[in-house]
Simulated scan of single mutants.
Amino acid sequence: MNSSNHSIWFYAVATVLSVALGFFVASHYSTSEPVYHHAQLLPQPRALPEMALVDQQGKSIGNNLWRNRWSLVFFGFTSCPDICPLELQKLASLLRLADASAKLQVVFISVDPERDTSARLREYVNFFHPDIVALSGSNTELANTANFFGAAYDRSVIIESKLFSVPAGIDMPVNAGNAYQVNHSARVFIVNPQGAYAGSFMPPFDAPQLWGDIKQLIKQ
Results as ranks from 00 to 15, higher is better:
17 L>D: 01
30 S>V: 04
110 S>W: 11
6 H>N: 07
52 A>H: 14
182 V>F: 05
53 L>M: 14
53 L>H: 12
130 P>W: 05
137 G>W: 09
33 E>K: 14
71 S>C: 10
164 F>T: 01
219 K>Y: 00
97 L>D: 06
115 R>A: 03
93 S>R: 04
25 V>Q: 04
127 F>R: 14
177 G>H: 10
174 V>C: 00
11 Y>N: 06
32 S>P: 01
43 P>F: 02
143 A>T: 02
152 A>R: 10
176 A>E: 03
113 P>H: 08
51 M>W: 14
202 M>H: 07
133 V>H: 02
204 P>M: 02
138 S>N: 06
154 D>P: 02
218 I>G: 04
119 A>V: 09
147 N>H: 14
112 D>T: 06
13 V>H: 05
122 R>N: 15
157 V>L: 02
192 N>K: 00
189 F>H: 11
7 S>K: 10
22 G>R: 07
148 F>T: 07
102 A>T: 12
28 H>N: 09
48 L>M: 12
51 M>I: 12
169 G>T: 08
163 L>A: 09
23 F>N: 07
16 V>Q: 02
155 R>V: 03
19 V>F: 15
74 F>M: 06
150 G>C: 07
205 F>M: 07
115 R>Y: 06
124 Y>S: 05
64 N>M: 02
42 L>H: 10
179 A>D: 14
185 S>L: 05
75 F>A: 01
72 L>A: 08
82 D>P: 15
2 N>P: 13
134 A>V: 08
15 T>N: 12
39 A>Q: 08
29 Y>W: 09
24 F>I: 03
33 E>V: 13
208 P>S: 01
68 N>W: 02
206 D>H: 11
27 S>M: 01
109 I>W: 08
77 F>H: 14
130 P>V: 06
83 I>R: 03
210 L>A: 01
15 T>E: 08
41 L>Q: 02
202 M>I: 14
27 S>Y: 13
161 S>G: 01
62 G>N: 15
165 S>R: 14
136 S>F: 11
197 Y>L: 12
145 T>K: 03
133 V>P: 01
55 D>Y: 12
129 H>K: 09
80 C>S: 13
73 V>H: 06
144 N>R: 15
216 Q>M: 02
146 A>W: 11
129 H>N: 15
185 S>V: 05
116 D>G: 13
62 G>F: 09
220 Q>V: 05
96 R>S: 11
212 G>M: 00
174 V>H: 05
115 R>M: 03
142 L>C: 03
184 H>Y: 02
120 R>D: 06
14 A>C: 13
26 A>T: 08
135 L>G: 11
44 Q>E: 13
51 M>A: 10
215 K>N: 11
194 Q>E: 13
81 P>T: 07
152 A>I: 08
170 I>H: 09
152 A>T: 10
46 R>D: 01
133 V>K: 03
131 D>R: 15
200 S>R: 08
135 L>C: 07
14 A>S: 14
195 G>Q: 01
194 Q>W: 00
111 V>Q: 05
151 A>P: 13
110 S>A: 05
160 E>G: 03
45 P>D: 03
46 R>W: 00
12 A>L: 14
77 F>P: 12
109 I>H: 09
25 V>L: 15
28 H>L: 07
59 K>C: 02
68 N>A: 06
180 Y>F: 09
61 I>G: 00
10 F>S: 06
190 I>G: 00
172 M>A: 02
152 A>E: 05
